[in-house]
């Protein structure tokens, strides 16, 4: 079943005085429980593509459907809701809230979904256990290593049990061992829980974890390859 359907997606935005044509016509279908890597040089439109799938942005033209919902028809409130329920983000720079403990960071998305306090604490503990950080729950981000931080951020992405996990260079700031741990976790989520994972990366080793690798250049898909 196709979970994400992108048709003729273009995205233009203004940067200072010049218009940037970030995406120039993307057609892409992603199935449920697929792990896909998006590669390409800087400025090729990888992040923009991720933002559109993540409902952080809407396309300038074309249609983006997530579970048959066309995101361009949604208002901001509805986008926020879809994002909160269906999508989890993992960022290159982790983007944890520095003032909150690992546990509280994982609870954060559930606060905005009005999950009860006790349910939140329980779920956060489960997720931290899943990423192997039960003993780090009370630590603040600055007391954790890069790899640990990224695993907290992954636990946070899973907080509202989303169908789709979007990871923007998740291993970009990690050593290869930590990077592999994170990728193994993402793969396990796909295999065991049927999550759909989209990973933006420069690193061919990371891309090797994916079932399918697409390469962008100047806002177009120039190559699509299935891994064995």
């Amino acid at each position: 079943m196709s979970l994400i359907k992108l048709r003729e997606i273009t995205k233009d935005y203004q940067l200072g005085k010049t218009w940037v044509h970030a995406l120039r016509g993307i057609d892409l279908t992603i199935d449920t429980s697929e792990i896909i890597a998006v590669m390409g040089p800087s400025g090729s439109g990888k992040s923009t593509l991720l933002h559109i799938v993540g409902c952080l942005d809407i396309p300038s033209a074309g249609t983006a459907q997530i579970e048959d919902i066309a995101t361009e028809s949604l208002n901001e409130r509805q986008l926020v809701r879809l994002r909160g329920e269906k999508i989890g983000f993992v960022f290159q720079t982790f983007n944890l809230v520095a003032t909150l403990s690992a546990q509280a960071n994982v609870e954060l998305p559930m606060i905005f979904q009005r999950v009860s306090r006790s349910r939140r604490a329980q779920r956060a503990a489960e997720l931290l256990a899943k990423v192997g950080l039960s003993d780090r729950a009370k630590h603040r981000p600055n007391e954790l290593s890069g790899g640990e931080r990224q695993r907290v951020s992954l636990a946070r992405a899973l907080a509202n049990d989303p169908d789709i996990i979007l990871a923007d260079e998740p291993t970009g700031n990690l050593d290869s061992e930590s990077g592999n741990t994170v990728m193994e976790l993402l793969k396990r989520l796909k295999n065991e829980e049927g999550k759909t994972v989209i990973v933006v990366t420069h690193d061919p080793e990371v891309a090797a974890f994916a079932e399918r690798v697409i390469t962008l250049r100047d806002g177009l898909i120039v190559k699509e390859k299935l891994n064995d």
Binding site: G54, V80, R81, G84, N95, L96, V97, P109, R156
Partner: peptide, 11 residues
């Protein structure tokens, strides 16, 4: 931080 909160579902 505000960006992150919005990304994780803050209205």
């Amino acid at each position: 931080e505000i960006g992150v909160m919005k990304a994780v579902g803050a209205k």
